[in-house]
Design a protein around this nucleic acid. Structure first.
Lengths: 343, 343
DNA sequence: GACTGGCACTCACGCCACGGGAGTGCCAGG
DNA sequence: CCTGGCACTCCCGTGGCGTGAGTGCCAGTC
């Protein structure tokens, strides 16, 4: 059966009012603030039904109603449109991010921006190594038996490692190695490189084999094992504002937030970059975060995501605006990466 | 007049008990827990004097006493020794930090370690650029008119910048530039480089001047202007544990903590690396942090500091232990940097 | 059949009064 | 100079009470 139109209006009104006031909303206040064109008694009946169906609940008898996770879910899926941002806001975002000088800066600026605009805790994942591709590899001799390996990706990320060589190696050999490694790897997706690196060992000049073997170990580490993704975080302050939304203390939440693995699972598992995802309340897998919602999306220079970003806050959150902001920031970050990677 | 010996004992006992229990300490409890060999009435007299002199105060009439900032100051300066760490603890620190693979890792690990050991908010400043010296500069052509400039410092820090050239420049010219720049700058303190870079413009081959001018701009930016220091932060959770110590909300404190400039001022202004500094309560310049203390020190590969690290917590803090931990971590971080920089 | 007005009921919350307990200040005596 | 004793202060937890917002239900109306 199709759900009653007015009941949905009531639910929407409840969500909006509750988000705005942070207080359980009663039938009378509802008919006053929204023009529902029916009496409070009618609304009460609808509310009783909505409660039975699990979309709202009463904190205590004789208190107003509060949306449940299920209620928010319905609201996000069916009852709201992502609120478009004003051109002024868009310009502000763009202007702020355009000032960035390097990748670090882009990430830091965007995470702060996100936190500021949404007034929630913001997270930005650095462009994932495994999903980017190699722009350049540089070998720098720091002594005759030690090389610093510097890798630059198309997203502008730079990784460096020190490599111990089995024996003294002259500048000319290092140059040869550099040339061959670059020929083989530049432009390749990092995820595809391991086999290429294996092959390289076979291809280099015989006397360079030992050095190449050492290098390949470090290369593989840098390329793949270093799957450990980095994160930037901002706006933890904003948790205190919504302290009342969290039963008990903020402690478990702050703890979860400091756990990078947790955050990565929450915002990092995106594949396509176009959709904004919303996890409401206990839809996420972490018990400590069962009263928080996550709004996240992927971003990347093109249509494939190289990283994720998002915000985290109480389930009582202005989803339409938050989703708009997250989407907009992701879009601009993607554009900036695209600009930087075209060479 | 020299202060009465017993009065100092009383003050010490008050600080220790208050730090341990987080509750105002009364005269009776004091004589029971510490063997002061006098009666509670005597202690009460001493306490009255200490209060008059401003070392302790009563939250309310008929409550126990609590140390004032001035009391903590006296305690830190005169009444306590830095508590030596057990060999086991030392080993644990060393083992944990030794696993680090690069500079980023060292910083992250040490900040987490510090937060964990002290159960406070920990801050570690990345090795300051201006105080390190140049190990290597690399120019990488990403197209005929664009170069990526990569600088590696002796502390292992890597900075990169994109540089737009005024016109197409071939590989050979870039190599010439690279060689000359490196000859001039390697081994130099970053703080000394600006004049050297200026000189470089005059010294290069005539046809490379325009390129060198572009490069010098970027170089100067990278070397100096980028004075913006980076920080790692951990353990904000620990604030919630001591929430009761902070009048009102955690909000201003969390806000201050997210302000990098503030943190840098608090922990970064060290010059010599050997001393642990303690700022108690409103001894720091930020009103929002007037009820927090900062224990910090410098660290570096040798005796000069290249960065600062420390922890931040309520004035009610176990200073002897915290100071010991901060000192120990700084020492080991310094050692690791020293290992990495000898090549 | 759907909506409305009315009414009794429930329960969180703020207020106040009260008693216990911990701690103090002071004083007289050793 | 220290100690035991005593009266006093004041925080804090507890329990009773009134108020008001909000509900559920029912009978009446369009």
């Amino acid at each position: 059966m199709p759900m009653d139109e007015r009941k949905l209006d009531v639910l929407r009104a409840i969500v909006e009012d509750y988000v705005a006031t942070q207080e359980p909303v009663g039938s009378k206040a509802l008919v006053e603030r929204h023009n529902l064109r029916v009496s409070s008694a009618t609304v009460r009946n609808d509310m009783a039904v909505l409660e039975e169906e699990g979309y709202i609940r009463q904190p205590h008898t004789s208190a107003g109603r509060v949306p449940t996770d299920k209620g928010y879910r319905l609201f996000v899926d069916k009852l709201s449109r992502i609120k478009p941002m004003s051109p002024a806001e868009k310009r502000a975002i763009q202007r702020f991010l355009d000032g960035s000088v390097d990748l670090d800066d882009v990430v830091h600026r965007s995470v702060r921006l996100l936190a500021q605009l949404t007034r929630q805790v913001a997270v930005v994942q650095y462009p994932s190594l495994t999903r980017s591709s190699v722009r350049h590899l540089e070998l720098i001799a720091v002594s005759t038996t030690r090389i610093m390996l510097v890798m630059i990706t198309d997203t502008g990320r730079v990784e460096q490692r020190l490599c111990e060589l089995p024996g003294p190696t002259d500048e000319e050999s290092i140059m040869a190695l550099r040339r061959q490694i670059n020929e083989k790897l530049v432009g390749k997706k990092l995820i595809d490189t391991p086999t290429l690196v294996q092959a390289l060992v076979e291809e280099v000049r015989f006397d360079l084999r030992p050095a190449m073997i050492s290098l390949s170990t470090v290369l593989l580490e840098t390329l793949v094992e270093r799957g450990e993704e980095r994160l930037a975080l901002a706006g933890t302050v904003n948790l205190t504002r919504s302290a009342l939304d969290f039963p008990g203390s903020l402690m478990p939440i702050l703890e979860a937030i400091e756990e990078e693995v947790v955050l990565l699972k929450l915002i990092g598992e995106t594949d396509s970059s176009s959709m904004v995802r919303v996890l409401i309340g206990d839809e996420n897998e972490f018990v400590d975060l069962r009263s928080t919602s996550v709004v996240s999306t992927g971003y990347g220079p093109g249509t494939t995501a190289v990283g994720g970003l998002g915000v985290l806050g109480p389930t009582r959150m202005d989803y339409p605006s938050t989703m708009a902001t997250v989407r907009a920031v992701a879009r601009y970050v993607g554009e900036i990466l695209a600009q930087n990677s075209q060479n």
